[in-house]
Nucleic acid binder design. Structure first.
Lengths: 112, 112
DNA sequence: CGAAGATACCTTGACGTTCTACATATGCTA
DNA sequence: TAGCATATGTAGAACGTCAAGGTATCTTCG
């Protein structure tokens, strides 16, 4: 009935991607697997969310991209964090902390 | 440039509203003020977000509504939580815990 | 008296993100 | 040779939120 929620908290995908890419160059498919693995399967990035997001971040110059051979021997597009991307990551991170803390406050205050 | 984020984490507004209404009948304008106050101004609900959200929740029978006189002596639409709304609140709450914990995991794991 | 500001409700149209579904191709393995 | 994981991508739609606009009442202050 269209009442179900997204697999993600909308607006947090960029943060997740930037964090993972900050660990070192990595290709798109691996990013989604990594997020899924770290989150113990709680976060599943659909391909229709992943690739548009990567293109968006690349367009904004937060990610740089380069085609290289993956560990598997296949060609893949490796993303890496730009200097601007690192700045943006800090912004996204503090916004997350700020907003999630605020929601925590509301949850706490309303259960008295 | 459209790069700035929402004042909210998209998808959490329903949870916030349901929590506040769970404390007792309250009208829309007061809900937004209350959320703003509890969150120490971190969360500001725009009226263009608030009223459509309230109508959505009412339509889904998670909120009931009744016109009454507010403390100020003016007419206002008071919302209260239905039984279904209480169930939904539990769902929204656990979804929030699940997803925010998962994001916390990714943040932790990527800063090593 | 008149203006301003807070209270209280609402709608419209645009926007960005995410989703489902589809499409393509390669490499490995059973 | 069929199936599955890997790997990238697109199109169209749904959804929630935002900016901006509107109405009306009540109180306060000049």
């Amino acid at each position: 009935m269209g009442i179900d929620k997204s697999d993600l908290l909308q607006g947090t995908l960029d943060l997740l991607i930037l964090r993972v890419v900050a660990m070192g160059p990595i290709h798109g498919y691996a990013i989604s697997k990594r997020i899924q693995q770290i989150s113990r399967d709680a976060l599943r990035i659909q391909q229709g969310s992943l690739y548009p997001a990567l293109h968006r971040l690349e367009k904004r110059k937060w990610l740089g991209a380069e085609w290289r051979e993956a560990e598997t021997g296949r060609e893949a597009k490796f993303y890496s964090l730009t200097a601007e991307g690192r700045k943006r990551l800090l912004v996204e991170h503090s916004e997350w902390e700020r907003l999630s803390a605020a929601i925590g406050l509301v949850i706490q205050a309303t259960q008295l």
